[in-house]
Simulated scan of single mutants.
Amino acid sequence: MRYLLVAILTLHIAALPLAAQDEDPPSMMEQGMRQFFEGLLLEMEPAFDSMRGFMEEMGPALTDLMGQIDDWSVYETPEILENGDIIIRRKPESELPEENLPQIDL
């Protein structure tokens, strides 16, 4: 998400001189800024590609997970174990507000 924000901001700033083009050539400062942001975009491109690959691979699984869990507030913060496993524990019922307690139909 942070990379996307940086890219949008970079493109916006890089486009400013284009939108305000007069008959004067760009100043040295404008040329330097344009080169700086073009370089930044080139440096960030591999991160964008890896993020895109991650979302293409994990997107369907995350969507399925979101559909299986009704209320995220009944779970603790995820915990990463030394072996890399991620555990998401359910909060004890004493900590849950009454509206989040499971209803048992008899």
Rank of each mutant, 00 (worst) to 15 (best):
M1C: 05
R2D: 08
L4K: 11
L5M: 04
L5S: 12
A7Q: 11
A14L: 13
A14M: 14
A15G: 04
A20V: 03
Q21G: 01
D22P: 01
E23D: 10
D24M: 09
D24H: 05
P25T: 15
M28F: 05
Q31R: 14
F36M: 13
G39C: 02
L40G: 09
L42G: 14
L42Y: 04
L42E: 14
M44S: 01
E45M: 11
E45H: 11
F48Q: 06
D49F: 02
M51P: 00
M55R: 07
M55T: 08
E56R: 06
G59V: 11
P60N: 06
L62T: 08
L62S: 05
G67W: 03
D70A: 10
D71H: 05
V74T: 13
V74F: 02
E76N: 12
E76G: 02
E76R: 12
T77R: 08
P78E: 06
E79H: 12
N83F: 08
I86K: 00
I87R: 15
I87A: 03
I88D: 06
I88S: 04
K91Q: 09
K91C: 07
K91I: 01
P92S: 10
E93Q: 10
L96G: 08
E99P: 00
N100S: 15
L101W: 04
D105R: 14
